[in-house]
């Protein structure tokens, strides 16, 4: 075990996979000489050289498109999009090509690309450095979508994503990059895609969440405990495919689900979970399914604390759930 930040754990996973498998290449803006604007690719250029650590021109569309072509020809590219807010420049490649390559080619060609991108708010980043666009990609068949919340999961899930035979959109909550430190397993370490993590056990309310919101949920759970309410916190880690078994187990136990994410409410990923609970676990419910999310506005520069699903807002939903 080595104590690492979230960013360092990403770096460690990339280095580990590049050493293990020479098909793994990294490409993106400022990933080489600069080591990435969040330092996730630091020193990789020195270690693996410019044919495997590729500084690209400023073009999200070409970064993703080129990564697809590389993957079709046998490489395992890990493309970095500097902020998930800029991923839309490559949206056509993601949706029209990356997601559909395997299907369109009936398996003759496929593209195991990982697209890494920092996601989420809480860094005074304004509209274009704070968004949580995961629902767009969850809505696109053919893509897997991963959002780790701890350094260990960042490493384990990134390694699993690189080894996956399908494209993975790997969102890294940027406010965690340098604010979190923990013991991360050394060497080969994987966390399976599609498996949730029970972060905190509880009996009364289930907070189902992912990404940086896990920490807001934990704080809310801590405060609820002082009010005598026992809250379970479930970190989905992967939203496509998501761990329905873990969700249903928790909902059956508490009967009071609260879903929390930073992305805006309307057609956010929470709506999918809520719908599944309604379809399959409605008789387990003791209270309506509640959502605590970003508001249905673009991400604001000012007052982002109010916009985000902060502990206060999650606690309020917990109280409302218990009162129902």
């Amino acid at each position: 075990m080595t104590v690492m930040t979230f960013a360092k754990a990403i770096n460690d996973a990339l280095r580990h996979e590049m050493k293990r498998d020479e098909r793994v290449v990294v490409l993106g803006e400022d990933v080489g000489v600069n080591g990435g604007v969040f330092r996730c690719t630091e020193h990789l250029l020195m270690e693996f050289g410019p044919s495997r650590v590729i500084d690209t021109p400023l073009s999200e569309s070409a970064i993703i498109g080129v990564a697809i072509g590389m993957a079709m020809n046998g490489l395992r590219p890990v493309a970095e999009i500097q902020f998930s807010d800029f991923i839309f420049g490559g949206f056509e490649q993601l949706v029209s090509n990356l997601a559909k390559i395997r299907y369109r080619n009936a398996g003759h060609y496929f593209a195991p690309v990982v697209v890494r991108a920092p996601v989420g708010g809480g860094v005074r980043g304004g509209m274009y450095h704070s968004q949580s666009p995961e629902a767009y990609f969850a809505h696109t068949a053919g893509l897997k979508v991963v959002i780790p919340s701890t350094p260990s999961d960042a490493k384990g899930l990134l390694i699993s994503s690189i080894r996956d035979e399908d494209p993975v959109i790997f969102f890294e909550p940027k406010r965690l990059y340098h604010s979190l430190r923990e013991d991360v397993p050394d060497g080969d370490y994987t966390v399976p895609l599609g498996k949730a993590r029970l972060v905190r056990e509880g009996d009364d309310v289930s907070v189902i969440t992912y990404g940086a919101t896990v920490y807001d949920a934990l704080e809310a759970a801590e405060r609820a405990a002082k009010e005598g309410v026992s809250v379970e916190v479930l970190d989905l880690r992967t939203i496509v495919p998501y761990d329905w078994e873990a969700i249903s187990r928790s909902v059956r136990k508490t009967g009071r689900p609260v879903i929390a994410h930073e992305a805006q409410r309307t057609a956010g990923f929470g709506a999918e979970i809520a719908a599944m609970i309604a379809e399959r676990e409605i008789y387990s419910l003791e209270a309506p399914v509640l959502r605590v999310t970003g508001y249905d506005t673009p991400f604001p520069l000012v007052h982002e604390h109010h916009y985000l699903p902060n502990p206060e807002r999650i606690l309020r939903a917990i109280r409302r759930s218990v009162a129902s």
Binding site: D85, F86, G89, G126, M127, Y128, L301, V302
Partner: peptide, 23 residues
């Protein structure tokens, strides 16, 4: 611009459209 975004400045009175961050 009511704190909505970063752009250094933008105001229709001056015929200046606020700059987008996506290049």
């Amino acid at each position: 611009l009511k704190g909505h975004e970063f752009a250094i400045f933008g105001d229709r009175r001056y015929n200046i459209v606020p700059a987008p961050t996506p290049v």
